[in-house]
């Protein structure tokens, strides 16, 4: 128990400590109160990273949600060979993000990638050498990859949720002559609400902190068009060695997450009896 607290607490406290100090090139010098935070919150790169994360989350998560729900409903209605299909769909979810990145680098590689050559280039969808070098499309490509990786998981999670629903209300609804749409809106969605809530929260947070895939595919580029907060913190630390400001960013993001978690946790506990 103590270890548990230590392991999660020590790095956090140290990060807070650093964020209040002038810390560059590995030397921690003066205590400077909130200067790091001020610098951070007034810098364009910070807000750019928030924008990137925002676009990423707001496109990827809803799309995954809807596709996942649709897929889950189909699976739940009955599909031949479901027991073979289901484990296969887990593969993208369980893959290392770094391997996912490599995979799509292979698929969409400059001139010879199987997708970039056969689809993108043939139909002239993106001009230039690589989609990852395109200012317009690089972020969208990353969103697409995230959707590829996580939609199957959403589908299976929702499917598991659907399978666990009680049968009684459905028989009652069938007897009452409710339409498919009514059953879905009035019965399935409310019954699944706690699950949707938890998965939504987890996906939101996971998508927000994405790092590995972007790191291997674009390193935040071209320019800063795909520079997520995680990537920005990484660059601040290990490229500019501005540790104080990077820590301030880390703490800031951490506090946002903690606040979001707390609020959601209490809502979930009270309203939905989740957890």
């Amino acid at each position: 128990m103590i270890t548990l607290v230590l392991v999660s607490l020590v790095p956090f406290i140290y990060a807070v400590y650093l964020s209040f100090h002038q810390a560059k090139y590995g030397r921690v010098t003066d205590f400077i109160w909130f200067d790091n935070y001020v610098t951070l919150l007034t810098s364009g790169t910070f807000w750019n990273s928030m924008y990137v994360a925002g676009v990423f989350v707001l496109i990827a998560v809803p799309v995954e949600f809807m596709l996942g729900m649709a897929g889950a409903l189909v699976l739940n209605k009955g599909v031949w060979g479901r027991s073979i299909l289901v484990p296969l769909l887990f593969i993208p979810t369980m893959m290392a993000p770094i391997v996912v990145g490599l995979l799509w680098k292979i698929m969409l590689a400059g001139s010879w990638g199987v997708l970039s050559y056969n689809i993108i280039e043939r139909f002239d969808l993106v001009s230039g050498t690589s989609i990852f070098a395109s200012e317009r499309y690089a972020l969208l490509a990353l969103v697409f990859i995230d959707i590829w990786q996580w939609t199957p998981f959403m589908m299976l999670a929702f499917f598991a949720g659907l399978q666990a629903l009680p049968q009684g209300p459905y028989r009652a609804a069938a007897v009452d002559g409710a339409s498919q749409m009514q059953i879905f809106a009035r019965l399935t969605l409310p019954l699944m609400a706690p699950l949707l809530f938890v998965i939504g929260l987890l996906r939101f947070i996971d998508a927000f902190k994405i790092f590995d895939t972007i790191f291997i595919l674009t390193k935040g580029g071209p320019g800063t068009t795909t520079e997520s907060p995680s990537l920005l913190a990484y660059k601040m630390t290990f490229e500019f060695w501005n540790i104080g400001e990077a820590s301030a960013l880390a703490v800031f993001v951490w506090i946002i997450f903690f606040a979001v978690c707390t609020v959601f946790y209490h809502i979930a506990k009270k309203k939905l009896n989740a957890f």
Binding site: S8, L9, V10, P11, F12, Y14, A15, L18, I205, F208, K209, F211, P229, S230, L231, A233, Y234, T237, I243, A246, S247, A250, V251, V253, W254, F257, F258, C261, T262
Partner: peptide, 13 residues
């Protein structure tokens, strides 16, 4: 929350 924190936040300290 510590589980939720971006790994980058942790890796610096």
């Amino acid at each position: 929350a510590s589980r939720m924190a971006p790994p980058v936040c942790l890796v610096i300290p």
